[in-house]
């Protein structure tokens, strides 16, 4: 296991505490993403989603989570990725943002990983601007990279468009 290895070059690491953070991992178009576990309320299987016409394209619709209306966000759309294949109805990761619930529709949800805060690396400068905005940093795991999703920025479509 090498993913926990501390980088000698402090300039390339984002200042963070030593204590580990837990992330819910998920994949979107084969890319691994992570969201801090504390911001995740629920993980749901495929849901009946009501389309919301004339909403921003990133909004997949609305769904009913135990009596609360949750706005579903298509993460693939947010990241300018092609639509999910027909046979994948996606998973819903429900997050709380400023008291409102949003469901991030991803391809699949994986395990919860505990990652030390000080191994978080900055976004590479070559990252697509659309991605750079929503990425809160990168973790190097064995064999793959995990992008930390910044939910606040992900939900701020206007900024995403401006970027």
């Amino acid at each position: 296991m090498t993913e926990g290895k501390i980088q000698p070059k402090s300039a390339s690491t984002v200042a963070g505490s030593l204590d580990a953070k837990d992330f819910v991992t998920m994949t979107v178009a084969d890319q691994l993403f992570g969201i801090p576990v504390l911001t995740v309320q629920d993980v749901l299987g495929p849901q009946r989603i009501t389309r919301i016409p004339i909403a921003p394209p990133e909004v997949a619709g609305a769904l009913n989570l135990r009596g609360r209306i949750v706005t579903a966000i298509d993460v693939r759309r947010c990241l300018d990725l092609p639509a999910r294949p027909e046979n994948n109805r996606g998973m819903n990761v429900v997050v709380d943002h400023l008291g409102e619930l949003y469901s991030l529709i991803v391809d699949s949800v994986g395990e919860v990983l505990s990652l030390p805060g000080d191994t978080l690396e900055r976004n590479p400068s070559t990252l697509d601007p659309r991605w750079r905005v929503v990425s809160g940093g990168i973790y190097r795991l064995q064999g793959k990279l995990l992008v930390v999703l910044d939910v606040t920025r992900l939900l701020d479509f206007r900024r995403a468009e401006a970027a």
Binding site: P53, A55, P56, L63, N64, T71, F157
Partner: peptide, 22 residues
Amino acid sequence: SPILRDVSMFSGNTILGDGSVI
């Protein structure tokens, strides 16, 4: 939801008797 505030066509949303959002 606040991210839909700009969409002036809807005044709100609700859950119907059959549990679907409308």
